[in-house]
Design a binder for these strands. Structure first.
Length: 448
RNA sequence: GGAGAGAUGGCCGAGUGGUCGAAGGCGCACCCCUGCUAAGGGUGUAUACGUCAAAAGCGUAUCGAGGGUUCAAAUCCCUCUCUCUCCGCCA
């Protein structure tokens, strides 16, 4: 969420910066509703102040044993106007809030111009794509030839965009997770966390997936009151004051560990001494992939369910861009140790995610596709998520709570890392070499 | 699943309708005293929002959440959530 002050005091400038993302904001409408809000809020608060003053006077009069009936009479006349003003204010604020929650983050100045991925800028490459003396196969062929990867049985069990892996391949997949977690905890100073895979809507609002991107999520319906309880409540004493309605307690499968992990600090004021907070977390991720029909339908690149090791940092604002560089480096280190060629690109303004102020994508070389494919996305959200979730820290310089900055990045997407290994380490005989860094995690196995 | 008890400021804890944003304590900050530790004394110590160019000031809201009663709710009523204890069940 953007600072509402920017939309009030610096609207034109803010809208200009947002235009870089290719979005337009109806400034006239926004300014109009904001003007309305101001008028109604001032009015409502005046009425409240008036009522409070009279109530206080009644209290004082009664304490002294004086007759307060006249003031009580006056006070009671305020009620109706106040109720009306408050209702109007609430309506306006809801409308305003809906607009503001739908506005993406402002791109950082260093973010390049561009409307889509063609505007992204490569910042560095690492490693040389291997020269094959045979035509390299894609990971589907490699995996199926080994008899260890099965999309058909997954489709029978669940449907499209799922996979079943077996034997040494399943083990290699698991080994990657251990390898990544070990590196980030041992060498990069992250604290491992285990978190829920089902989260509530408040958490998703905090990181920015809701309200705008519900279609991308798997929702698990859940209501809190059953008919029996509701009936009992209705038969209770104060029938007229009972407001029984089913409360939607639906949960969502996490699309990334970013959601539960970043929300660890929702409504928290972090002690400056504990900063920066650095968490690493392995979870499965679930994405509906609505709107990606026909895209990456083959193989493990785009699945409804995949494993990911996620890096999350909560830092003081002035450190966040240095932290983004460091975090990106931590993700790159995995690929370097696995000897997988990759490149890093800065996403242009039009290609960035909703909540991000700046994003680096790491793209790994896939011989089967003869191109680089995203394997990690590392972003600085500045205070955009922090404002939504009220994640703060106490700034020692001001001793006041201030919004923290949040960052995250994949370190790495496990399924795609496995894909990269299968494609880059394949042999002509169909076997796949195990990268030496991984061998300790698979009992010394050299190939599968 | 059944029975019960709770939820108040950074922490502990008082407060059952009215000058309560909330006593007291702890902690923290600053000051005083004290020849440097300990002890003692004083002062201060929530957050958000609005108004304002900004600050000050003023106003509004917040005692788990939502709703209700009332001129007035931390306090009364209803619903929900969460925590704890006991029983049952369970990986």
């Amino acid at each position: 969420m953007l600072d509402p002050k920017l939309l009030r005091a610096d609207l034109d400038n803010t809208v200009r910066k947002l235009a870089r993302r290719g979005i337009t904001v109806d400034t006239a409408a926004l300014a109009a509703i904001e003007e309305q809000r101001k008028r109604v809020q001032v009015h409502a608060e005046q009425l409240q102040a008036e009522r409070n003053a009279k109530s206080k006077a009644i209290g004082m009069a009664k304490a002294k044993g004086e007759d307060a009936s006249k003031v009580m009479q006056e006070a009671s006349t305020i009620g109706a106007a106040l109720t009306q003003a408050q209702a109007e204010l609430e309506r306006i604020q809801t409308a305003l809030n809906d607009v503001v929650l739908g506005i993406p983050n402002i791109p950082h100045e260093s973010v390049p111009e561009g409307h889509d991925e063609r505007g992204n800028i490569e910042v560095r490459r690492w490693g040389e794509p291997r020269k094959f003396d045979f035509t390299p196969k894609d990971h589907v062929e490699v995996g199926e030839r080994l008899g260890l990867m099965d999309f058909e049985v997954a489709a029978k069990i669940s449907g499209a965009r799922f996979v079943v892996m077996k034997g040494t391949l399943a083990r290699l997949h698991r080994a990657l997770i251990q390898f990544m977690l070990d590196l980030h905890t041992r060498d990069h100073g992250y604290v491992e966390v285990y978190v829920p895979y089902l989260v509530n809507s408040a958490s998703l609002r905090g990181t920015g997936q809701l309200p705008k991107f519900e279609a991308d999520l798997f929702k698990v319906p859940h209501e809190s009151i059953d008919d029996e309880v509701a009936l009992k409540a209705l038969q209770g004493k104060d029938n007229d004051s009972v407001a029984v309605k089913k409360i939607d307690r639906s949960l969502y499968l996490i699309p990334t560990a970013e959601v539960p992990v970043t929300n660890l600090v929702r409504d928290v004021i972090v002690d400056a001494k504990e900063m920066p907070l650095k968490f690493v977390c392995h979870t499965p991720c679930f994405r509906s992939e609505a709107g990606s029909y026909g895209k990456d339908t083959r193989g493990m690149i785009r699945q409804h369910q995949f494993e990911k090791v996620e890096l999350v940092q909560i830092v003081p604002p002035r450190d966040s861009y240095a932290a983004l560089e460091a975090l990106t480096g931590h993700a790159e280190k995995i690929l370097q140790l696995l000897q997988l060629p990759y490149r890093v690109v800065t996403l242009c303004a039009g290609d960035m995610g909703f909540s991000a102020a700046k994003t680096y994508d790491i793209e790994v070389w896939l011989p089967g596709q003869n191109r680089y494919r995203e394997i990690s996305s590392c972003s600085n959200f500045e205070d955009f998520q922090a404002r939504r979730m009220q994640a703060r820290w106490r700034n020692p310089e001001t001793s006041k709570p201030e919004l923290a900055h949040t960052l995250n990045g994949s370190g790495l997407a496990v399924g795609r890392t496995l894909v990269a290994i299968l494609e880059n380490y394949q042999q002509q005989d169909g076997r796949v070499q195990v990268p030496s860094a991984l061998r300790p995690y698979v009992g010394g196995l050299e190939s599968i």
